[in-house]
């Protein structure tokens, strides 16, 4: 049995790479993908902890159910987010995140 710490470490690495993706990419679609990657890494952590607490029958599925909800929210988020990207592209003719700088003081 591979120690769960390894899995958690993988989750952390993936999460960090997602965050790094958000920071370094300008393409809003890829940024969006990075967000999905981060969500995925978080989901992995949930599953890992669910696996850890599986012996306790009372809370055996809590982690997995959280993953399920996260997936649902992610799906909704993607639906809305991609719609937003489409609208932004229509108005700016670009999906470059650096050109969307209207939120400055």
């Amino acid at each position: 049995m591979v120690p769960l710490n390894y899995y958690l470490a993988l989750s952390a690495i993936l999460f960090s790479m997602g965050a790094l993706g958000i920071l370094i990419r300008r393409n809003s679609l890829i940024i969006f993908m990075s967000v999905e990657l981060m969500l995925n890494a978080a989901n992995l952590s949930f599953v890992i902890f669910a696996r850890q607490w599986a012996a306790n029958s009372a809370s055996v599925f809590n982690g997995q159910i959280f993953v399920f909800f996260v997936m649902t929210v992610a799906a909704a988020e993607v639906a809305v987010g991609l719609a937003l990207i489409v609208v932004i592209f229509r108005s700016h003719q670009s999906i470059d995140i650096d050109q969307l700088n209207n939120l400055k003081g």
Partner: peptide
């Protein structure tokens, strides 16, 4: 939530 997201996407 999913319904709202769907409607929102369509409206947007």
């Amino acid at each position: 939530l999913l319904l709202v997201a769907m409607v929102g996407a369509i409206v947007l």
